[in-house]
């Protein structure tokens, strides 16, 4: 667990981070979002003491970070950056094995760990272990970057715009894989990004920053439903907010059981989002979809009326509470 309370950082006269208080629960992914220069990277780098904070407390597993030896602290925190920061003179395997070697694991343990992580990140060992970073594509290099960060089996992972330099397709693929890895490993992750879609897709907890301060924080759904001010609203996509919210909602949570009427032609898997359902309705010119499970067996149906009403219901229930 990571706790920041009233943390500030000043560089000379300039204040980069101003009185931040936030908490990242164990095994959750917290996204720091904001325009560039809002202090989100500085916040991240204060956690592994690449930058020392000026005031306030940063507490890691119940202990203030000043009490840790910075080198040992960093070895138990994974770190991924946009430019990958891979060592160009080392092979992929050697890059990934860095932290285990620093932690003085045995050679066999290190090799086993490296191979396991390469498998986890979809990098076939025979093909990639001996390649050098300059022989990799951007996506492959960042996979190596993530593997390297996970190599020492840290509880905490800090990611500084890890997918920012990748093309949209690769970015989406890596986001998907990160979500999959996270659902398996349950690391405590702090994720810096300026891409709101990325944050909404991955985060359990969303922190919006502006000029070194936290403007609003909460679950992605809460932020979408009640943006605190026009800045947060514009960051959340203004008019597109409805669609973004639909993207966070699963079809299976809103479907109704199969009625007596003829099932609709278009079929949608149950774990797709409402946004994808809406898109399918627009594409197929229909207002009803048949919901199917993984084996393509119909298990329910979803209508446009239902989606719109659900959204309304969400809003009224929020207003009442």
């Amino acid at each position: 667990m990571i706790e920041l309370s009233h943390v500030s950082k000043t560089f000379g006269d300039a204040t980069a981070v101003d009185d931040i208080t936030m908490r990242v629960a164990k095994g959750k992914l917290c996204a720091l979002v904001g325009t560039s220069g809002c202090g989100k990277s500085t916040t991240l780098r204060m956690i592994n003491r690449l930058i020392d904070h000026s005031s306030g407390d940063i507490i890691l597993d119940g202990q203030a970070i000043e009490q840790y030896d910075p080198v040992k602290l960093r070895r138990r925190i994974g770190y991924v950056i946009q430019s990958t920061g891979l060592f160009p003179h080392w092979s992929v395997a050697r890059n990934i094995g860095l932290v285990p070697r620093l932690l003085k694991w045995s050679a066999t343990d290190t090799t086993a760990r490296v191979e396991k992580l390469m498998g986890l990140l979809g990098l076939p060992v025979e093909e990639f272990a001996h390649k050098y970073p300059h022989q990799l594509s951007g996506g492959q290099a960042q996979r190596v970057g993530v593997a390297r960060a996970l190599a020492g089996d840290p509880d905490i992972l800090l990611m500084d715009e890890p997918f920012g330099a990748l093309d949209p397709i690769t970015r989406e693929k890596l986001q998907e894989e990160l979500a999959k890895i996270q659902s398996r490993l349950h690391k405590t992750i702090v994720f810096v990004t300026h891409d709101m879609d990325e944050a909404l897709r991955l985060a359990d907890h969303l922190v919006v920053m502006r000029d070194g301060r936290i403007v609003q924080q909460g679950t992605p759904l809460a932020l979408l439903q009640h943006p605190h001010d026009p800045f947060v609203e514009s960051l959340l996509g203004g008019l597109e907010r409805g669609l973004k919210q639909a993207a966070l909602t699963r079809v299976k949570d809103h479907m109704t059981s199969l009625g007596p009427t003829l099932p609709a032609q278009s079929r949608i898997p149950a774990d797709f989002s409402l946004r994808q359902a809406l898109s399918m309705m627009l594409r197929d010119h229909c207002d009803r979809l048949t919901v199917v499970d993984q084996n393509d067996v119909p298990i329910g149906e979803l209508s446009l009326r239902r989606i719109v009403k659900e959204a309304q219901w969400d809003r009224t229930s929020q207003r009442e509470s």
Binding site: N48, L50, V71, K72, L73, R74, R75, I77, Y79, I81, S83, T84, G85, L86, F87, P88, L98, V99, L102, R148, L158
Partner: peptide, 12 residues
């Protein structure tokens, strides 16, 4: 960037 990464990985 490379040196910063080295530091962040916990190299002395």
């Amino acid at each position: 960037d490379t040196l910063q990464a080295a530091k962040a990985m916990g190299m002395r």
